[in-house]
Design a binder for these strands. Structure first.
Lengths: 197, 197
DNA sequence: GGCTAGCGTGACACTCAGTTTCAATTGAAG
DNA sequence: CTTCAATTGAAACTGAGTGTCACGCTAGCC
């Protein structure tokens, strides 16, 4: 969308270019390794200038990780649509179905992406940072569900964080199994591991 | 320690210089802001060359965060000394007392440090990354306690991660209260928030 | 159908973090 | 005192990210 809010022809073109650049970057990173590839390499491979590349993605990491940006909000939205009388854990678990959808849509691509991120410290760190940024929205969504006004309570923060850990642990194990294990079961198992006192 | 294992005069000097450099960096960052301060500024303020500064701390972030490096191992060690029949949550909660000790030793310094880190995206990210690196040791310690041989089960990873979240949430709230709330109570409360199904 | 204002782009210069190399110095051990 | 290894500082280099500016294309307007 442009600043005015209307989706123009230009915005569509921009999104297409962005997707294309991201794809080129992903393939180059996979083939050569993230740190071997310079911004100049990326720009050359994509047929644009270094300046342009950096205008689409503020950093090298974001060329690959910008796909994650919307995820946090989507999970928070899913959380808000859960029935009000549902307990936090069930609501969180169900909201995370939103987050694992892509892994079912495109298992091979997701596997490759997860591996690339896991094997690249810079990407790993940046992804951690992004996920950390999801927590306020999740905690706020939990607080709203509880009927509280704004400031989420300590418990909401803890449960939001723990749920994200479950997601990460489940995805890690799924990746270690080369995508053979069932991600839904792993996620259930992760949540279950939180329960026993 | 030098490579041989013996602690020599040089090693003592090194440690002293390292502590001094860290202190200078911390004060400069607090006064001017992390990103305003360049490596040249740091070196000049500490009276050493840029090269030397970078030899002591591989990155600008580590000048302030290298204090955290040992923490993960210390918590894992504390975990291993807990009675074998204790449940994971109790053991984790008690092991984390090791981690919050510095906050009682030097509340003002800890408060300043926590704020600096929280308000500086680069430091926040780097700290997150370091903490992420603690999880393997914690998960392994839990697995050992359970009598299992090496590969920690999914549940161990989940509980190790959740415990670290509790620590972080507790410290965040403690910081927000300007250190007025009791960190031990906050940590207890955080762990309690994990329980209710 | 031209005109123009604005956006996307490329070129370039710049700052700064981090790496590497090398020569000079220091200080501990024999 | 001499020798040898470790510490340091100087300097050159790579690469990420920022800022500026001028050019060209295109959408919208008369």
């Amino acid at each position: 969308m442009s600043a005015a809010g209307r989706t123009s022809t230009r915005d569509i073109a921009r999104a297409a270019v962005r997707a294309e650049l991201g794809q080129v970057a992903f393939e180059l990173f996979r083939r050569e390794g993230f740190e071997k590839v310079t911004l100049d390499d990326l720009a050359a491979a994509a047929g644009v200038s270094r300046s342009t590349f950096l205008r689409y993605f503020g950093t090298k990491e974001d060329a690959v990780l910008s796909a994650f940006d919307a995820k946090g909000e989507r999970v928070a939205d899913a959380l808000r649509t859960r029935p009000a009388d549902e307990d936090d854990w069930t609501a969180l678990r169900c909201a995370l179905d939103t987050a694992i959808e892509p892994y079912h849509q495109d298992p091979d691509g997701s596997l490759a992406m997860t591996r690339l991120v896991r094997d690249t410290p810079a990407l790993c760190a940046r992804q951690l940072e992004k996920q950390h940024g999801w927590r306020p929205a999740l905690a706020r969504a939990l607080a709203e569900r509880a009927g509280f006004a704004e400031p989420p309570a300590l418990g909401h923060w803890v449960r939001a964080s723990a749920a994200l850990d479950c997601l990460n642990v489940a995805v890690d194990h799924w990746t270690d199994s080369d995508g053979r294990l069932d991600l839904v079961s792993l996620l259930d198992e992760a949540f279950a591991a939180l329960a026993p006192r």
